[in-house]
Design a protein around this nucleic acid. Structure first.
Lengths: 376, 376
DNA sequence: CTACAGCATTAGAGCGCTCCAACCAATAGA
DNA sequence: TCTATTGGTTGGAGCGCTCTAATGCTGTAG
């Protein structure tokens, strides 16, 4: 249970501790003779450097701290992949922490991460108050992902929810839909931009927005649909605030005897692995998650190396992924649809002519099966 | 960007560094006067102790390292929840790392974790060779979750896959099924016990096991079903190796015009959040994941405190969660079923009488909606 | 008045490492 | 021959902290 120190290696190799240090750091100014002797001794002793002592002595760190607000969400796993990739390339280690979406726990997690004196911090969608973030930013470089900030010492990486919502609306309009409702994400940080994008896109097509209050869960999606049905104001297409919500919406629609996409089209948001399951096969908006991670790590390392002091605000463009939950609306003339579909509204007739100007950005259909490994 | 040290606090409070140290560690042998003076100075300076310097000086650590083999899998998130809970209670910090299911990356992740000289290590379903694990175990306490080991210095926490598979088979038999196939998990660590449990359960009911080679992905589940259909040996019930596989199987069944559970019942394994989605509503086997984490952390801390030296092997009992993908088989007399159902086999007629002796262990139906938060 | 607790406080060594300045050949230049 | 120069090597200070032993300071007993 006791690990050998540099002193032990030096003794065994018959050199000084300082020389061992040089070898361990790959210094070029060590003779081949000594180098191999040291390496051999280290190998025999099972020595590996003590990261904390090293960073204490060098007053630098090769560690990046990452706080994940919610480990249950696979969204973050992919961001971490991107971070990991860049960090590894540049010789940095990553340590992760989680706050479980609770401000108190997150605060503790932040403190804990800080106590390691990492070179920098990446916070994935943190829920702690902005003051806690800017306080941390006084001590080391901080990058925020999926959360915005106005503090000039922190960089941010976000997706452009307005563009994403617009992509979805354009897609539905190009299919011929005119009555498109948005199941809103409520308080969620990204709900605002998505809602704004939806409203703006609808208006730019001359259509009437219909925002239904909902949440980021499948239960909330189902609830919203049931209320639309009982109010007899069900549209021909739904844009959910995220994939979970969309899946809940689909269930409720099917429970009511409606077919997706036959009677109602549904678009999700996030392109979680859930959406890619053939059983679900959800048309949705994809965010370049790994790219989020790469950009975040890149921005952080720039700060760490003091190559930049002005803040960077990455706003990534999401893309549309067309799968099997969207289709042209059932033509109202044939009226083959359900009795739930309301006949009111639709005061814009010319929107069909805009179909042509739609074009999905890099639609991806690649299978994501690899990602679904079960526990072993 | 420069953090204050203990020295700074001492100076400002007009005391010695050693006294500050005592206050920081909550020592009782400090007068109230000095204590508050120190605390005030620390607060004003925004001081917080340097974890690495502390652990270096004290030659102890309050950090538990956790290596997660796959962050994308929500299974591990819940295990981490359990670990976190216990660790926090006992004043330990948790740092997480991931190896992305690649032995090479995992090895590096292990090294990285080790370089922090944590008090102990928990490895969640690692794929590194056993030698790497036992080498690590020479340096600090190690607990394995979802992977077994024979090394006497490492503790393990696993679910009893044999019992889980038996629960599933018993459930299906109690519904009247006799032709039950198992879609096998192949090389996955837990696939063996599940397969053995399935075979043993089938035989104990006097039924003929039908093991179909598959994998832990939804694509593999679909593939397996298609081959069963084309071979005309589709049973009335399927026990998948995990939930993803089950969802793939269900899709393939539905694509072929079969109804679940009307024509074929399907049982998953793991009770991932996926299974709980109302759109999926999968009957499955639940593992007490948070309990895994709690037990792992508990076992680790025992070793850390040197309260125990003999290995501990936790084997937790899974439970059946009945949802909507299982039902009694379509009676063959009416033969309303599909042309795919083979008529061969079924050499045991008395198994129906065993229906009564089945009882699910703590079947849980509580909604897991809370867990499906989208990114914000 | 001295002795001796008992308590609060502190000096100083040291944890495993890095880094700087110094050192020591060995070679090159004058 | 003597001084620079270079490349390899080393001692020692110090990173921010803990911990042990020693210190000073009451207060009480002898």
């Amino acid at each position: 249970m006791i690990r050998p120190t540099m002193e032990d290696v030096a003794l065994r190799a018959g050199v000084s501790r300082a020389l061992v240090s040089l070898v361990m750091r790959g210094s070029p100014k060590v003779s081949e003779l000594r180098r191999s002797a040291v390496l051999k001794a280290a190998e025999e002793l099972g020595y590996s450097p003590h990261a904390m002592a090293r960073s204490l002595a060098s007053r630098t760190s090769t560690v990046l701290g990452v706080m994940v607000s919610d480990l249950h969400n696979a969204f973050f796993a992919e961001v971490v992949d991107g971070i990991d990739e860049v960090a590894r390339d540049q010789g940095f280690d990553v340590i992760i922490n989680t706050g479980g979406r609770s401000p108190a726990r997150e605060r503790r997690a932040l403190e804990s991460l800080l106590s390691f004196r990492p070179a920098g911090l990446i916070l994935l969608s943190p829920v702690v108050p902005a003051t806690a973030i800017s306080k941390a930013a006084e001590q080391l470089p901080v990058v925020l992902v999926a959360r915005s900030s106005r503090v000039s010492t922190v960089d941010t990486v976000n997706d452009d929810g307005e563009v994403g919502a617009r992509l979805a609306v354009d897609h539905l309009v190009s299919l011929g839909h005119q009555r498109i409702a948005h199941l809103d994400g409520g308080e969620g940080t990204q709900a605002g931009p998505r809602r704004r994008g939806y409203v703006a896109a609808m208006e730019s097509h001359g259509l009437v927005p219909q925002v239904v209050s909902s949440e980021y869960t499948d239960a909330a999606g189902a609830r919203a649909i049931r209320s639309l049905i009982s109010d007899r104001v069900l549209p021909t297409a739904i844009l959910s605030c995220n994939d979970f919500n969309a899946v809940g919406a689909i269930s409720a629609l099917e429970d009511a005897g409606l077919r997706v996409p036959g009677d109602v089209s549904v678009v999700g948001y996030d392109n979680t692995s859930l959406a890619a399951l053939r059983h679900v096969s959800l048309t949705t908006i994809d965010q370049p998650r790994a790219e989020f991670g790469r950009l975040a790590a890149g921005a952080l390392l720039q700060r760490v190396r003091e190559e930049r002091t002005e803040p960077v605000r990455h706003l990534l463009t999401p893309s549309l992924v067309v799968r099997n939950t969207t289709a042209p609306p059932a033509t109202s003339r044939r009226s083959s649809g359900s009795p739930f579909l309301s006949t009111a509204g639709g005061d814009s007739a010319e929107s069909g002519s805009r179909t042509a100007d739609f074009e999905a950005k890099s639609p991806e259909r690649r299978s994501r099966d690899q990602e679904h490994g079960g526990p072993r």
